[in-house]
Structures are given as C-alpha cells and as structure tokens.
Write a protein that binds this DNA or RNA. Structure first.
Lengths: 200, 200
DNA sequence: AATATCATGTAACATGTTACATGATTGG
DNA sequence: CCAATCATGTAACATGTTACATGATATT
C-alpha cells in the first residue's frame, strides 16, 4: 500500500514549501535536504501517483506552458502533520566507514589513516557548504520555514566539526599505534598505552 | 548472488575477532557495533550459508558439546581484507529527526522542542555508555583489535557531544521563535522577508 | 539540426525486516 | 517438568536503487 510513509512525508513536506514538479522535487531534496535525506525517482513518482489518488496532492497548470506542478491539498497538509507527529523511527545505522575502522587490524594502519583523512576532508567541505548555506538563510529563500531549516543546518555544522575533531584524535591514535609497532620490533602493535611493553 | 557485500563484511569481520555461532554473531553486532551497524537474523544466516558454500567460513566442533561455531578460514580472511579495502560507499542518509525539524513549521514549535529534548537525552545516555565502554577497552577484551575499536568509540563520543551542544542551540532558537511569535501578536512568526508565495 | 536538460514513468533487481516454525539446552 | 534462552532457518513482505524507455523543451 503506502509505499513508505517516510517518502510520503518528505514529498508532502517539500510540497508544503512550494508546488513543484516531480523532477524539481528530487532536485530540491538532493540539494536542500541532501545532508540528511535522499529519495530516488523510483520512489518519488509512485509516491506522487499514490498521493494524487488519495487527493493529497493535485496537479496545477495542467497543459499550460511548461509542465504541471504538484501542489499539496488540504487533506495533504493534514496528512503531513499526522506523519510528522508520529515518532521518528531511528533508522538502523550502517556506517561503512566505522565498520572498516572497527576491523582496522585486518585493513592495516595506513589504509585506516587514508579513510580517516578522507572523512576529515569531506567534513571540511561540508562545513564550508553549510556555513554558506546558513548565510543564505539569513536572506529570504524559505520564508517562515527558515528558522527550522536553520536548526537542521546547525546540526550539520556541529556534526561536521565533531567529525573533524574526531579525525584528528583518530590520526593521533593511529600514529601512536605505528610507533608502538616499530618499537615493538616485529611484534604486532600493542594498544595505545605506552606502559611497559617489552617485546617477546 | 552475494547477499550484500556489506553483510558479508560485517560477518567475516566479527568472525575475525573470534569464532561464534550465528546467534552470538547477531548479539555481538548489536551490542558492540550497535552504534553504527546492525544486522538481522534474516541476513546473517543466509550470509553464513553462502560463506560456508564458498569455504570462507567453516563450522567448528560439529556435534560436540554445545552447538557448532562458525570460524573464518584463510580464504575468508583474504576476502575480508578485500572487502574492507574497497571504498566505503556512504549510505544514503535518512535522518527522520531532521526531516521532522526541517518541516517544523508544520509540526509546531512545541513538538519540535520535544523531539530535540528526546534527542538530547538519547545522546546523554549514549555518551555515558560509550565512556564506560572506553574504560572497559583499557582492560583487555578485544586484544589487538582494541586500538581500532577505540577509534570508533571516540567517534561515537564526539558525535554524542555534538548532538548535545546542537540540541542546546536548537532549543534556544525555538524559544526565540516562540517569543517572536508572542510579540508579533497572533500572526505567525515571520522570518525576515514578506516574500511572494502566491499559489492558486 | 544537435545536444543538453527537464520531466515522467516502469521493470528488474537488490536489500532488509518481521513473523513464524522448529528444536536443543539450561536453570529453577 | 517448565520456562527462558540459545540456535537455526525461511517465507512474506517492505523498501529502495538502477537502468532503461520515452518524449518535451530549451540552448547553441
């Protein structure tokens, strides 16, 4: 039936900001919610079709100039508020980076360092993007939605800064690990405590 | 074919630490990797079956005392290193909390505050759990895997602290928003610009 | 005219969860 | 003995991505 409540929520939510084509919906979600949400065409169009059948969205400007946009209806707004109200089910986490680091002993210290450095670089980029996004927000773009959008942008910034700080700490750990390995001769790297570790 | 490389990675990785039953595998993943990974029985058992067929894991102690455990083979270790080596594909983000806050205007300020407070509380709990997990790590439990596990624990701690800091900021924003609404009479809180959002 | 982008959709596949069935072992 | 937990598995379903097909509109 309901091809995912989650997708419906995102679609109705986006349309609550302004009417859009399905295509623009995907673009908007990617560019604006990209840091914490994603939808593919394969979900958006079926979702729109279903919502239209349920009279929660309707097409506007049918064969007018360009193509028709989808607009949220009253029933749709009600449904959206309903969907937003039920508790956010925390999605099962699947962090491929952490999985690799967790089994870092198999992967090797150097590869781990690369991964951490890449993550750090991504976080830096994200941070500058978000900071400029916040600047834009001071402008106009989203009207009354702005304060709420700001809150999500702030979350992204905090997250990015946390990633950067973590990365630096992780790099230290990895270096310490390597040094310990060198000192310890051929013996495998011991944990991070200097302590008294005579080899063999 | 391969019922998810990701699941295979997690299963082989866990077995690289020590041999386990499928049941223990699931428990171990939930308790140890829980903060950034999850697998269900419906994935683990088929994955184990397939890995056994490919001779990457084997059963140990068949009808001995308790039940048989699965152990990683040489081929399995090689495969694991292979899997860990290819780049972590960043999973498409789906943060239900942020989605709700983003559309917070529809949800209402009070409900948003509740959500933020809940998130903050979860982060607090997580932080204390991770801190004690780190203390345990100073002990022995995971041997040579410890330093790598530590890195992932640190990531969790940084993340949790970031969530807490963000939550406090977000709560301030929400309060400010409410005050602005009160001052502004019955009119809904204005962002900054009147804007022209005529539809219909 | 040719190319790029906008736009809508679908089918095949990949992935993942839930609920159920089944039985062994263990502790009270 | 009975209940709880350990243990293995499967089938039905839910969800989600990718690749493709199709055509309109806009740009050069």
């Amino acid at each position: 039936m309901a091809r995912s409540d989650q997708t419906q929520t995102a679609v109705l939510g986006a349309l609550s900001i302004r009417p859009m084509t399905g295509y623009a919906l995907r673009e908007g979600i990617r560019s604006t919610l990209g840091n914490f949400w994603s939808e593919s065409f394969g979900q958006i169009y079926p979702a729109l079709a279903e919502l239209e059948r349920a009279a929660m969205v309707e097409r506007r400007g049918a064969k007018d100039t360009r193509s028709s946009t989808f607009a949220i209806t009253q029933a749709g707004s009600a449904r959206l508020r309903e969907l937003l109200s039920d508790p956010p089910q925390p999605s099962k986490p699947r962090n491929a980076l952490m999985l690799r680091l967790f089994f870092g002993r198999q992967l090797g210290v150097d590869a781990c360092r690369d991964l951490v450095l890449q993550a750090r670089a991504r976080a830096e980029v994200q941070l500058t993007e978000l900071t400029s996004a916040r600047a834009e927000l001071e402008g106009q773009s989203l009207g009354e939605d702005s304060p709420f959008v700001l809150i999500t942008v702030l979350a992204g910034e905090h997250g990015a800064r946390a990633t950067i700080a973590w990365a630096d700490e992780a790099l230290n750990e990895l270096s310490a690990l390597e040094e310990a390995a060198l000192e310890g001769d051929g013996t495998p790297p011991r944990a991070h405590i200097p302590s008294t570790m005579e080899q063999s």
